[in-house]
Simulated assay, not measured.
Amino acid sequence: MQDADLRAGAENLLVTCGGLRAGDHLLILREDPANGYYDAAIAGAVMESARALGIDAKCEVLAFDPMGAALPPALVARMKAADRVLFLSRSGDQIRFSKDMQGIRPIMSYALDAGMLASGFGRANYQGFVALKDAVNALMAAAQHIRVTCPLGTDFSGPGAAYPKSGAADVSVTRFPMSVFAPVPAQGFSGVVMQDGFLVGTGSKFYDPYGCGLREPLAVHFRGSVLERFEGHERDVHCARMHYAKVGKQFGLDAMTMHSWHAGIHPGCAYGMAAAENFERWSGAAFGNPRLMHFHTCGHYAPGEISLNVLDPTIEMDGAAVWKDGVFDPHLVPGGTEVLAQFPCIKAVFDAPAQAVGQGPGGRLAS
Rank of each mutant, 00 (worst) to 15 (best):
H25K: 14
L29Y: 09
L29H: 07
A34C: 05
N35H: 11
N35S: 01
N35V: 06
G36E: 05
Y38Q: 10
Y38A: 07
D39F: 02
D39H: 05
D39E: 09
A40Q: 10
A40N: 11
G44D: 15
A45L: 06
V46E: 05
M47S: 05
E48Q: 12
S49V: 12
A50G: 07
A50L: 07
I55Y: 09
D56Q: 15
C59V: 15
V61K: 04
V61Q: 12
V61F: 04
L62V: 06
D65W: 00
D65K: 01
D65F: 05
D65G: 04
G68M: 02
G68N: 07
P72F: 08
P72E: 13
A74H: 04
A74K: 04
R78N: 02
R78M: 11
M79N: 00
M79F: 04
K80M: 08
A82G: 03
A82E: 00
V85T: 12
V85P: 00
V85F: 08
F87P: 02
F87D: 07
L88C: 03
S89M: 01
S91Q: 10
Q94V: 09
I95L: 13
S98Q: 08
D100Q: 13
M101F: 12
Q102W: 14
G103L: 12
M108L: 14
M108V: 10
S109P: 02
Y110D: 08
Y110E: 05
A111G: 09
A114W: 09
L117I: 07
L117R: 08
A118W: 08
G120H: 06
G120W: 08
F121M: 14
F121H: 12
G122P: 03
N125F: 09
N125Q: 12
Y126G: 09
Y126T: 00
Y126V: 10
Q127W: 06
G128Y: 07
G128V: 10
G128Q: 10
V130I: 13
A131S: 04
K133L: 03
D134E: 14
D134C: 09
A135H: 03
A135Y: 06
N137K: 01
M140R: 00
M140K: 02
A141L: 06
A143P: 06
H145L: 10
H145P: 02
R147C: 15
V148Q: 01
T149L: 11
P151I: 05
